[in-house]
Amino acid sequence: MAVDASLAGRTFPPTEPYDVTEQAVADFAAATGTPYRQGDPAPATFPIVVAFGAMQELMRAPEVGIELHHVVHGQQKFVHERPITVGDRLTATLTVSGLRQIAGTDIITTSSAITDAGGALVCTADATLVHKAGDR
């Protein structure tokens, strides 16, 4: 079953606030061997932690209902307004910017605005998710 076409253009509610901790940044950096010292800004791809939470809520939405292991990450881009640091409280607000169906595959383009506790934009994380509808 294909993803509901009405999804295009929809903005989902903001995710629960995520507190950036020293441990979270250190673990994220260590997993890829990225040098990290206490006080350093978080790695450039760290906001995926927050954006991924928003993507999981999208996948769990009743009219979407797709299984994570049937989804392939097609494309990702981060645009940073400022580096993320420990102590930031971040929220992601995901918009489905596009939805295409090609030969039984859903191509879902999303844009997540990641904002801080003051509501200022910290990073925009654009993701393309590819879902093989026939696998359901």
């Binding site: 097609g74 990702q76 881009k77 981060f78 654009d126 393309t128």
Partner: peptide, 11 residues
């Protein structure tokens, strides 16, 4: 670290 303003790719 901290100098990357934009980073993107297709997988």
């Amino acid at each position: 670290p901290g100098r990357i303003l934009e980073l993107g790719a297709k997988f």
